[in-house]
């Protein structure tokens, strides 16, 4: 078994347009390294992230999903990140119930000025998910075929 050495997790990071996506850009501008396993999807606000998207990601074989939004109180749309926080609390406890390790999902607040925090968060998250190994729990076999 050489799985652990070879294993490259698939990680999706949902980033809000105003803070975290800009924070990710800043990490790039400052040439701060984090693993290429992280792929970012831009959304207008963390409250745009439907729990369905996360379930879909896990169904399609993602090993980890991280949501990044503005710090509490700093949401561009005033209250969006609060909605996201509440929804994700519920979703995460449901994922836990389904047997998806809770370390595979995370919510982080990253501001537009926190490039270093973005890179550090991603490094740490990838490390955590890599240790957990491949996520098989929610894999939809029908999805595997394509």
């Amino acid at each position: 078994m050489q799985v652990n050495n070879e294993f490259k997790p698939k990680i999706i990071a949902f980033c809000c347009n105003w803070c975290s996506y800009a924070g990710a850009d800043l990490a790039g501008t400052n040439r701060l390294n984090y693993p290429a396993d992280v792929k970012i999807i831009r959304v207008p606000c963390s409250c745009r992230i439907n729990p369905m998207f996360i379930l879909r990601a896990f169904q399609r074989g993602a090993d980890g999903v991280i949501l990044c939004g503005c710090h509490p109180g700093d949401c561009h749309y005033t209250s969006g990140n609060y909605f996201a926080r509440r929804r994700m609390t519920l979703l995460f406890s449901m994922l836990d119930y389904l047997g998806i390790e809770k370390e595979r999902t995370r919510v982080e607040w990253v501001s537009a000025a926190e490039g270093a925090k973005f890179a550090a968060t991603m490094n740490e998250f990838v490390e955590t998910v890599t240790k957990l190994g491949e996520n098989k729990r929610l894999e939809d076999l029908r999805c595997k075929e394509n």
Partner: peptide
């Protein structure tokens, strides 16, 4: 912002440019 799109239980609300299907 899209807050309503997630709150909608029947999936009637969607966001142009960042629709459920697109994401």
């Amino acid at each position: 912002c899209g807050a309503c799109t997630v709150a909608c239980p029947s999936g009637a609300m969607d966001l142009k440019g960042f629709s459920n299907r697109q994401i």
